[in-house]
């Protein structure tokens, strides 16, 4: 998955109604799409076809449980950031992203001198020791292609909402 080729999903009014109705969650019933269709006064088939279409185009990543990891005891959330040789960052980034304890991994622009890092890997653990052990594993993987790294721990969640679609 690269962001360079954003096959865009053209939305119409029905898609937008479905997104607005589900961005904070799906109705929790045995037949959630039927409940949604009823709420939107649309045929069930139409709602299911639209959702499947958005999933196929990547507009929906998946329809899933989103854990509140802090509440689940995963208290240490370290954003590990790495200054990796530009020639090697994509190949190494794929390997970092594939590690089971890395939840997201991205290449982002540097802002020197304040910010020399170009690879981000989010590492979660029950405590900082667990996070640090995992970060050491990433450091071994990156080896000499990495010129420096840091871990930014989150000290406070200031805001968290789902995607908001206006209008």
């Amino acid at each position: 998955m690269t962001d360079g080729s954003p096959g865009m999903h053209a939305l119409d009014a029905v898609d937008r109604a479905i997104i607005r109705a589900t961005q904070n969650g799906l109705p929790l019933t045995v037949e959630p799409y039927a409940t949604l269709a009823e709420q939107l006064q649309l045929p069930l088939e139409e709602v299911m076809t639209r959702l499947q279409g958005m999933q196929d185009s990547g507009a929906i990543r998946r329809i899933a449980a989103v854990p509140q990891h802090y509440a689940l005891g995963i208290r240490a959330n370290g954003m590990s950031v790495w200054d990796v040789d530009d020639a090697m960052v994509d190949a190494l980034g794929e390997q970092v992203g594939a590690l089971p304890f890395v939840s997201h991994s991205y290449r982002r622009p540097r802002h020197p001198p304040q910010w020399p890092y170009n690879l981000f890997a989010m590492v979660h653990g029950r405590d900082r020791r667990q996070v640090e052990a995992k970060v050491a594993e990433i450091a071994r993987l990156l080896g000499s292609a990495c010129r420096g790294h840091d871990i930014l721990y989150s000290s406070r969640l200031l805001k968290k909402t789902g995607l908001r679609l206006s209008g």
Binding site: A59, R61, V66, A71
Partner: peptide
């Protein structure tokens, strides 16, 4: 609050 939500994750 153990799940922040259950539903589609939009990109």
């Amino acid at each position: 609050g153990l799940l922040s939500r259950f539903g589609p994750l939009y990109n």
